[in-house]
Amino acid sequence: MMNIKDRFPLAGWSVSGAERNTDAQILYLTDGLLKERLLFNSNFIENEIRGDKRIVLFVDEVHERSINIDLCLALIARLLTEQPSLRLKLKVIISSATLDKSVPNLFRQIPQLKFDQYQMPFSQTLHKVEKIYRPKENILDVVQELCRKRQRHDQILCFVSSVTDVYQYCNLLDKLSHGIVIAHPLVQSQSASEQQRCIEHGTIFFSTTVAETSLTFPLLKYVVDTGTINVSIYDPKAKQTTLKEVPASESTIKQRLGRLGRTNPGEYHALYDSKMERRTYPKPHVCQSNLIDVEFSLRRSFLDNGLSHLKKFLPDPPEPTLIEAAIEELERLGK
């Protein structure tokens, strides 16, 4: 016999290729699927707010500033600007531990839109975190040192700039310790269940940016940070994308430091110069990527218009040369 929870589920989810209870009151979905619904279903919001119904769009981890997240923000801002009647039935919540002011400014400038901004009154951690600068020290030497002084179940999380570095350091640590010290890789391509298994059974981890916010380490005691990050940068003149290692932004460093101090005191070991010049926030991906796929998606959507139109709704619009390069390439391909 079907119970009321089965007939009226509270929450459902949807990811690429799989979904469950999509008619539930609360639906969790990826930023990519939210973008697709906003782009290719012109009645997406209207269908959800028929009668007295209202809808809340909760967009989390906005600080990542991926192309999908920025497009979601732009499409939501466009709806609220061009369809004022939606403002009474649509509530948008934007959440992030750190956030560039360009994002709230995007919505603040929409006429007659009720706008509220809440900031945490303090940023102290529950437990004390000691910050230790160790510029130019070898990351494997530091990890082995921490292994010797840690308690049995203390976890060590190391941030490096690339997937290649993640696997390389895991292998090198295994060889240096003759198989006694085992490190686990954490990268974006792993499934959530695989990442969770690593965290449950491991104590030493090498990770890219994936561990900055989306993963929880119950016994984390040490963070070792190289202070760098790999970014893909597109050159519209050369028509090629290169991977470049750059200093992580101040907000990224803050995210990494913030992994500590939640369940017990911790130590943050910075393998970089404290005086190194950094951006306050990471540069949005839409401002440094090849935009041909974005331009193509916008043109075949119900908007029937490209970035030249949508850019005014982006928190940080890309340079005209990036948009022009995408348009020229599409025209060359006959799209």
Rank of each mutant, 00 (worst) to 15 (best):
I156H: 04
I139Y: 01
D116K: 03
E137G: 00
E130H: 06
E137S: 01
P121C: 11
R148L: 14
F122K: 09
Y118N: 02
E145G: 03
V143G: 03
K136G: 04
Q151M: 12
K114D: 13
K149D: 13
Y118I: 06
L146F: 06
I156W: 02
K128A: 05
K149S: 13
N138E: 15
R150P: 06
Q155F: 08
V142A: 01
R148V: 03
D116H: 09
E137Q: 13
Y133K: 03
V129C: 09
R148I: 11
I139V: 12
Q151I: 03
V129G: 04
T125R: 15
V142S: 03
K114Y: 09
K136I: 04
Q124P: 00
Y118M: 09
E145R: 09
M120A: 13
C147S: 05
Q117M: 14
D116P: 00
E130F: 02
L140V: 06
S123Q: 14
Y118Q: 07
L126N: 07
I132A: 00
T125D: 14
Y118H: 11
K149C: 12
Q124Y: 11
Y133W: 13
S123P: 01
I139T: 02
T125P: 01
D116E: 14
D116I: 07
C147A: 08
N138A: 05
C147H: 12
V129A: 06
K136A: 13
Q155A: 13
V129S: 03
M120G: 12
D154M: 10
K131W: 05
V129T: 06
Q155N: 09
I132C: 06
V129H: 01
F122R: 10
T125N: 15
H127N: 11
D154T: 10
H153I: 06
I156D: 11
N138C: 02
M120T: 04
E137M: 06
K131R: 14
E130A: 02
L146E: 15
R150K: 11
V143W: 00
Y118F: 08
K114G: 12
E137K: 07
